[in-house]
Amino acid sequence: MLAVERLVVKYDELTALRGVSLTVESGALVAMIGSNGAGKTTLLNAVSGLIPTREGTISWEGSLITGLTPDAVCRLGIVQAPEGRKLFAKMTVEENLQMGAYSPGPRARVAESMKRVLELFPRLAERRRQTAESLSGGEQQMLALGRALMATPGLLMLDEPSLGLAPIMAAQIFEIIGDLNRAGTTILLVSQEVLQTLSIARDGYLLENGEITLAGPSERLLADQRVKKSYLGL
């Protein structure tokens, strides 16, 4: 279980997160919605150890992980597929997937994971010798997801996995995320696609201006007047 408590993150004097608390239970699919600049990516990067925190704590399976370096966080099984995919552009599809399993634990099972990921994304199998930059947007997103799965995540944090994709492709990605969760992967899904995100997640958080303003089961978030008005355009 991931537990974030009263987390504060500042960029110089700009406060990005003002005391954010959230939990992701083992086996859950939790959604984090909010507009651009609300602090969603900042939260994921703070958990991953990419940016320093000012106050508050982050704990994983009961032990404190605040202040760990990103590679140490990854070794604990907390894996982030970052916004904008951030693939290794000039490396092949296969090499990108191998890099996903760089940590010692996943590396011991790299052949097995590779087989699983290529079965899940047959398109990647067809293109395993091509460079990541030569793939289409949808294929790149599959590669980003596949690379994250190669790390055999205990917690998979996905940041805007449907950004820039055609609606049909985005729907397919959300379906895959739902399937992954049903197969047992714990997921924290960050997205601006409120309707699709909340339709596959059981619980959700609304992040606005660096603060959690709403939390609860997805149905309750979907029924909320503010969410309807600001995020669903109803």
């Binding site: 290794f88 000039k90 490396m91 890099m99």
Partner: peptide, 24 residues
Amino acid sequence: TYTGKAVRAAWQQSDAAQLYGVNL
């Protein structure tokens, strides 16, 4: 080699390399 690939990964996309366990 895995270490060699990590060198290339770190140069192409250092944040992602770190997220997947590369100690820069």
